[in-house]
């Protein structure tokens, strides 16, 4: 895409055109990361002065049960939520790809959970999980799925499930859109040919479409993993990381230190998250750049 057919040759205009972009990205993303990295070698608590302690914040993190719990929760949540998002998102994409009347309306339905601020939808989910009169318990009790009301946000497993539903609801639509774009790129004569060969729709999907979707699904998988790694909004609002820190993500764990004025340790925790995320982003860019290099 980029690179072919330059119109103007010579001159240094290009750098002026790109300078504002680089200025913003460096000033408000790259320097802050560098600053956080720098801070992570200090003991830096508000009103208590700053002291260079080199790697002590990091060694502390590895033996800190709170950090280990947050890291473990984040990885478990990714392992459960991302496959579910991919599965539901792909199912949505397959439905949206079919000939249905009012196509635009179905697509808008799927788009809406994505477009709403997570903090706002998390508040709706918080009410849904209300112990006394929330929708979740109303359905659970009246359908006979549960003997009595479930204490969703009061137990570790209840909170996990509550977050899972709220997160998958919000993010599956994004997967659906990416996969839909992939589906529309599948040549229809390929599907028609399989049809002539008397394959059922499911067989066509499994044998023809799915293999062609592999690159798109890989991109979606990586993107969702990177995004879930930094999960914050929905947890902050819906469970606050509780009960007992059982649903605290690494982002929330680091945030709590920043909010409490401990910039040194907060920086170290968020740098550890950054490093994992950076590794995955590098992989993503390599994959996304695959077509580019060709």
């Amino acid at each position: 895409m980029a690179g072919r057919g330059e119109v103007v040759t010579g001159g240094r205009e290009a750098y002026f055109f790109i300078a504002p972009l680089l200025l913003f990205v460096f000033a408000f993303i790259v320097f802050p990361i560098a600053g956080t990295f720098f801070s992570s070698f200090f003991s830096d608590v508000t009103f208590m002065g700053k002291k260079f302690i080199f790697l002590s914040n990091y060694t502390h993190a590895f033996s800190d049960p709170g950090f280990r719990q947050a890291f473990g929760f984040t990885l478990t949540f990714i392992a459960v939520a991302v496959p579910l998002e991919l599965f539901i998102g792909t199912a949505f994409a397959v439905i949206l790809d079919q000939e249905l009347p009012l196509r635009g309306l179905w697509r808008a339905c799927v788009l809406i959970p994505w477009a709403i601020p997570s903090a706002v939808s998390a508040r709706i989910w918080q009410l849904i999980y209300n112990y006394g009169y929330g929708l979740a318990n109303f359905i659970a009790v009246h359908s006979g799925l549960a003997d009595g009301p479930v204490n969703w946000t009061g137990t570790a497993s209840g909170s996990f499930i509550a977050l899972l539903a709220a997160d998958v609801w919000k993010t599956a639509p994004f997967v659906a859109l990416i996969v839909l774009a992939g589906l529309q790129a599948v040549p229809s004569d390929l599907k028609a040919q399989a049809r002539v060969d008397r394959a059922t729709s499911f067989q066509v999907f499994r044998l023809v479409t799915l293999p062609l979707l592999k690159p798109v699904l890989t991109v979606a998988l990586l993107f969702r993993t990177i995004d879930t790694l930094r999960i914050f909004d929905v947890i902050y609002v819906l469970t606050g990381g509780g009960p007992g820190g059982s649903t605290t993500s690494v982002s929330l764990y680091a945030y709590n230190y920043f909010a409490g004025g401990d910039f040194g340790y907060g920086s170290a925790v968020s740098m550890l998250l950054f490093m994992v995320s950076f590794g995955l982003s590098w992989l993503y860019v390599r994959l996304a750049g695959f077509g580019e290099a060709a």
Partner: peptide, 26 residues
């Protein structure tokens, strides 16, 4: 326009957009 490192800029900003926001807030 003619410029060196276009792909670098594109992929650099793509990588940057995936950083966890919490590592910027302090």
């Amino acid at each position: 326009l003619e410029m060196k490192g276009k792909a670098v800029v594109l992929f650099f900003v793509l990588a940057v957009s995936m950083f966890p926001q919490v590592s910027l807030i302090g």
